[in-house]
């Protein structure tokens, strides 16, 4: 049953200016924009709020790393190597070069979050634009864009990332570029699908009938409606990006030592797996917690955005 009613009964307003008999009986209805109503729904979702707070804490810790971290993450110590969890002065222990684990994990969040967010952002802008163009343009432009994207699609994402990073060499910038290239086709496809769906709706035809140019229609009527699905998909990609970036670093194709990066830390610490198992697991736990929190928040936002009306 499709409930389309919004008007609650009350007294009929004695407004003779209204020529017809559309009686609005609840003038007090609260008008919310789309994003406002999404936020309103999220307000009640304790799970999403909780995990969102964890994400926020991780982000704040990474930004404020110099203020929070007890030690310089690069400062080595020959005597203080591989100290276990709970060591005096180094509550989370030290790594194989005697650097403070807590400080390195906090600083590592900066790089890991950057590697998680930057490629997704780039892919969203580039892929989103290509997708909207592909979705709205004619058959030729659509085919050109989408078939090119399909070529990238043919490779498994991790393999593609490894191949591009391998070809361009290691380093953070190259890592970001390779991950952006990996995500762009998927982003493009999502934007294209959303655009193609919106394109044939009546209100787009009505806009065309009122004499609007294609660019005006895209700006006013398409972008706003494509943004939702694109945003949902992008937020789910963040955790994938963090994991892939960590994987690249782990393989030595991403961030180079001595930078504190969670994936790289996992790689270098694995030699001391039998000496300090808990210490070795810490970067892994950090990656796990961050990516799962991003995923759960993304799920919650998706739920809040799905509801129409």
């Amino acid at each position: 049953m499709n409930e389309r009613v919004v008007v609650a009964p009350g007294a009929i307003p004695a407004d003779s200016e209204i020529a017809d008999n559309e009686v609005d009986l609840a003038p007090a209805i609260k008008v919310r924009g789309y994003w406002q109503s999404v936020l309103h729904r999220l307000r009640y979702d304790w799970m999403t709020i909780g995990f969102g707070l964890v994400v926020l804490a991780i982000v704040i810790a990474a930004i404020a790393a110099p203020l929070i971290a007890p030690f310089d993450p690069y400062q080595q110590s020959i005597v203080g190597r591989l100290k276990p969890f709970g060591w005096r002065g180094h509550p989370w222990g030290t790594d194989e070069l005697g650097r403070d684990m807590m400080s390195r994990l906090i600083y590592g969040g900066r790089i890991s979050l950057l590697m998680g967010l930057a490629p997704v952002l780039i892919a969203t802008v580039v892929g989103g634009m290509l997708g909207v163009i592909g979705g709205f343009a004619g058959r030729v432009a659509n085919t050109a864009i989408m078939r090119t994207m399909d070529v990238f699609y043919a490779f498994p994402s991790i393999l593609l990332a490894v191949a591009i990073s391998g070809a361009m060499g290691g380093g953070m910038i190259n890592g970001i570029i390779s991950l952006s290239l990996v995500f762009t086709p998927a982003m493009c496809r999502v934007a294209e699908t959303a655009t193609a769906q919106v394109k044939n709706l009546d209100y787009i035809e009505a806009a065309r009938a009122s004499g609007a140019s294609t660019l005006t229609i895209i700006r006013h009527h398409v972008l706003g409606n494509v943004l939702g699905p694109v945003f949902i998909y992008a937020s789910s990609l963040v955790s994938v990006s963090i994991l892939l970036a960590s994987g690249l670093s782990f393989l030595g194709l991403g961030v180079q030592p001595p930078e504190p990066d969670w994936g790289l830390m996992l790689s270098t610490l694995r030699q001391s797996l039998y000496v300090d198992p808990l210490g070795c697991a810490l970067p892994g736990i950090a990656i796990f917690v961050t990516s799962i929190c991003f995923n759960l928040v993304s799920d919650g936002v998706r739920g809040a955005m799905d509801v129409r009306g």
Binding site: E17, A19, D20, D24, I29
Partner: peptide
């Protein structure tokens, strides 16, 4: 006004806040 809707009440509303 011509179609019988008060602009101050209905103008700012979104489609899902209107009846058919």
């Amino acid at each position: 006004v011509k179609v019988g809707l008060r602009p101050d009440l209905f103008g700012p509303r979104y489609p899902h806040e209107l009846s058919g």
